[in-house]
């Protein structure tokens, strides 16, 4: 089973092996079944590559994220400022809330704040809870989820922090993705080698010519 590497994209097999393979391929009758040697169609290859890209994109946490406590921290801080309090007294909650959103329009959490709007009443309920959490040492508010009136720690068992605790967030990257890359590499390498050990794809077996029982046509002639 010698290997040949001068034309890796065409074949990895020695000519003799290819010749023997061809002979067997044409001669053999597997219960009346025959196989052709067509290449992987280009659209199939494209679809496979597209699948790989999509796999990562849909698994990376892009959509469907619940609001975390972190996105409301600035809202809560703004609540105590004299400006907001005076708006609240003169024009009511809604105007005050509008102003809070306006103040935070450059916030790094802008997109999430937009997706998860809150009212002043909501803020009043979650404010003491978030403040309580902020008192804890080494706390990351992104680990806490806000749903309705509750602020609770998330049950995501994410990456480890340097202090040995786990991030309680869906990760953008972790060893799972790394294993995926390794695994995919192994797979594509394996399949490519397997396929390149076959006779090159421009050769097609002629098993139908002498056999009246089988197909009256051959693919891609």
């Amino acid at each position: 089973m010698p290997w040949v590497f001068n034309e890796p994209l065409v074949t990895l097999t020695h000519e003799e092996t290819v010749a023997r393979s061809k002979q067997l391929w044409e001669a053999e009758d597997l219960g009346g079944m025959t196989e052709d040697n067509n290449r992987l169609p280009v659209p199939v290859v494209v679809l496979v590559l597209l699948t790989v890209a999509t796999a990562f994109l849909t698994t990376i946490p892009l959509w469907g994220q619940r609001p975390t406590a972190a996105i409301y921290v600035d809202y809560i801080k703004a609540m105590d400022t004299p400006e907001i309090q005076s708006i609240q007294e003169t024009q009511g909650d809604d105007a005050a809330m509008k102003r809070i959103v306006e103040i935070n329009k450059d916030s790094p959490f802008k997109a999430q704040q937009g997706r998860h709007p809150v009212s002043m009443n909501d803020l009043r309920v979650i404010k003491p809870q978030i403040e309580e959490i902020m008192k804890l040492p080494d706390v990351d508010l992104k680990d806490y989820t806000v749903v309705g009136p509750e602020v609770k720690i998330a049950n995501f068992e994410g990456n480890y922090r340097p202090n040995g605790k786990r991030e309680r967030q869906q990760p953008w990257w972790d060893k799972g993705y790394t294993i995926d890359l390794f695994y995919l590499t192994m797979f594509f390498l394996g399949v490519t080698i397997t396929v390149k050990r076959l006779p090159p794809y421009h050769w097609q077996p002629r098993h139908h010519d002498n056999d009246p029982r089988h197909g009256d046509r051959r693919h891609n002639v």
Binding site: G64, Q65, R66, T145, V147, G148, P149, E150, K152, A154, N155, F156
Partner: peptide, 8 residues
């Protein structure tokens, strides 16, 4: 209950 939706 699901982390993403069910809390309330």
């Amino acid at each position: 209950p699901e982390q993403t939706q069910d809390w309330q």
